[in-house]
Write a protein that binds this DNA or RNA. Structure first.
Lengths: 216, 216
DNA sequence: CGAATCATACCAACTGGTCGGTTAATTGCA
DNA sequence: TGCAATTAACCGACCAGTTGGTATGATTCG
């Protein structure tokens, strides 16, 4: 077996690296990157400073690696839901509704205080990061826009909307509404908001593309 | 005359205080609170460290005063638009549309790189602030919810919605959509997004409350 | 062995905050 | 009104603690 049980102190560089990234993610989402010290990361990850700087050349390098891993997970998560949605319905509009439903499920299944989104955290400290790190945010945002725009365009072709719409900015709502919802959720501590706000996006699309009322 | 022209170096405690708050607002929205040093604030405000600690007992006190001023400006801005909207139409639904239009105008009139929202900046560094400071965020958020909820309930009474809606979370969209839009705008540097996303909220409400299509 | 992985001890730079002192405005009183 | 006394606004050198980062040595594993 190459897999190893999570015993306390074994030599496993990948696990150490992951522990550093996990610890820093938690800390950064609560304190911001600037106020997250290497010492705090090291302590929470249960390692030492030497190990930290063995894996990451600098704090900035950690920032970059962290957001890259985050962006990749985000992309993979979306991709997985997309595959599932396509399997469940051939109709592009229904696929969008299913996608929304899957995310609503995810949101409802969450527990503990809501952590928020690393992209938003970074962008509100943007001057602390180098261009390459910020570029990851941009690319992720544009990826969301492109994916949702393509789905929406197919949906529009099959279901002409009741009123003309700006497709690009409509696609953006799939990113912007959750992002705003995260801010509210973190502020009020009410995790039901995420799904409830997503449901409004669903209703909007239903009114826009369906002849009458609900489907669900 | 007790009023004084804005000449370079005059003794004017209120002006000094405002300069500190202005400088720290700019810096915090770009670097976050944690990474904004008192020295940087002092330098940008064109004063000295001594003057800073004469006006604010600590950095935390600055944080609190800054968000309180910000919340008050936000509230006053909303209030002013509300008054104008009520003057322009007696119909509650139309008032909401007018309010949205006024904010769209504000967004379109902006120039320079978009600064973002201090509430979002703070909440993504929430562990750095004391309870009283975070409470300001909560109160502002709940104020928005209460105001928009009241308007929406009046609108619903006059224009029964096509499908049943959760009023509270619908009211939240007036806060959450701009907030998410701010994140996207800061990320992509495209200031047109703000108004375009707001317009979707308008379209949603039109589809929800009006018999057919557009009004505007 | 010898390279990869991690620990310990340490440093120079910077941080928020303090403090004694200076300068300008305001007040009290003749 | 004239002006000394008092107070508020402001300055900038300084301090103790913290920061990101380094140097070097110990341990593990192929």
């Amino acid at each position: 077996m190459s897999e190893r049980a999570s015993s306390p102190r074994v030599r496993d560089p990948e696990k150490t690296r992951a522990a550093i990234l996990d610890a820093s993610l938690d800390l950064i989402l609560d304190h911001g990157y600037g106020a997250t010290t290497v010492d705090a990361v090291v302590q929470r990850a249960g390692i030492t400073k030497g190990a930290f700087f063995h894996h990451f050349g600098s704090k900035a390098e950690l920032a970059r690696a962290l957001v890259e891993r985050y962006a990749e997970m985000d992309r993979a998560h979306l991709e997985a839901h997309l595959v599932r949605a396509r399997k469940l319905s051939p109709d592009p509009l229904q696929q969008i509704f299913i996608l929304l439903g899957l995310y609503e499920e995810d949101f409802e299944a969450m527990d503990g205080p809501f952590p928020g989104c690393l992209f938003a955290s970074y962008i509100y400290e943007n001057k602390l990061f180098d261009e390459g790190t910020i570029a990851v945010l941009r690319e992720s945002t544009l990826m969301w826009r492109a994916v949702m725009r393509e789905m929406l365009e197919k949906a529009i072709a099959a279901h002409p909307p009741r009123v003309p719409v700006d497709v690009e900015s409509l696609a953006d709502l799939f990113y912007a509404i959750p992002e705003g919802s995260f801010v509210m959720t973190k502020t009020l501590g009410d995790r039901t908001l995420l799904a409830r706000h997503a449901r409004h996006l669903r209703t909007y699309l239903e009114l826009l593309f369906l002849d009458r009322g609900q489907t669900t």
